[in-house]
Design a protein around this nucleic acid. Structure first.
Lengths: 156, 156
DNA sequence: GTGAATGCGCAAGATTCTTGCGCGAGTCCC
DNA sequence: GGGACTCGCGCAAGAATCTTGCGCATTCAC
């Protein structure tokens, strides 16, 4: 894990622009941040090499691809030993419906971000896979109605 | 909102590759999906034009940028009329700590994905901004310990 | 003042993007 | 069947971009 980065204003502009459009050409990016293309490319490469930019991803339109149900699941376990936590984390990676997952502290132990083609598929997953999984105590679900904000993870 | 797309195997390969590396060159992409560059570029453009690919985004390393606290907040409102829901949704857009937000159904009305530089900043936000916001009834927070899965939103 | 370090911009070759065009496979209607 | 049409691929060439090396200006420390 890298040390806290020291970034100047241009670096922050680059990060903001690439969060907004990760496929922007380097020429366009350099124009927007106010330097010429070669040093701009070197800055981007440095940000990638230092792990500040972790990756680039295309964001897809789930409903257009037949995925109409987005939901969150808060999962509580009976036992929270390191072995138990790791076992459940491993299990989440084997479930395609679970698109991302976090280990959390609070009333629950895991937060799952889920995606399914329809409500039936999601309910079947919750009942037959999630709730009936070993060591799972409680499952609370929140079906999303619509997303009201979607900014990048790190602001400005 | 577009009609359900009809995509062939090559389109799905393209979507998978661009979810994995959204900044891949078209030449490399075409090599991976097994067609030449021009038709590959035309397919990507079509996927973008139809809104199936919504955007490209650089994913940043939050801790390296001094953002050590990632949390989820489940917010329940006193009144859930359309006006009330819209008012709270608008409010979330004005909070930089809230990076993304969903309107949900279930025990709560909104799910907030939050990012803060430290625990104190996050707690101040919850107490002085979120809990004390008009019409907010309940706030349950789940601090993330670590992310255990992070796939793209739509699989394969 | 001087030397080292940093980071910019210029320039040129390599690579990629982008467009128009021709060709072959599949389909539909006669 | 046969002909016209549609669709999507690949080739090719010019435009744009990427990538690298290099020279120069600024800054900092000594």
């Amino acid at each position: 894990m890298p040390i806290k980065a020291d970034l100047d204003a241009i670096d922050w502009k680059i990060l903001r622009e690439l969060q907004d459009d990760g496929r922007m050409t380097n020429v366009e990016l350099s124009r927007r941040v106010g330097i010429s293309a070669p040093p701009c490319l070197r800055r981007v490469k440095r940000l990638e090499d230092e792990g500040i930019i972790q990756r680039y991803r295309a964001l897809l339109n789930a409903p257009a691809l037949g995925m109409d149900v987005v939901a969150f699941c808060l999962v509580g376990l009976n036992r929270q030993s390191e072995v138990d936590l790791k076992a459940f984390a491993d299990r989440t990676r084997g479930w395609p419906i679970v698109r991302s997952a976090w280990m959390v502290s609070g009333e629950s132990d895991f937060m799952l971000h889920c995606l399914a083609p329809d409500l039936g598929t999601f309910q079947t997953f919750v009942i037959e896979e999630l709730t009936s999984s070993p060591n799972v105590d409680t499952v609370r679900t929140a079906l999303t109605i619509r997303q009201v904000k979607d900014d990048g993870l790190v602001s400005i």
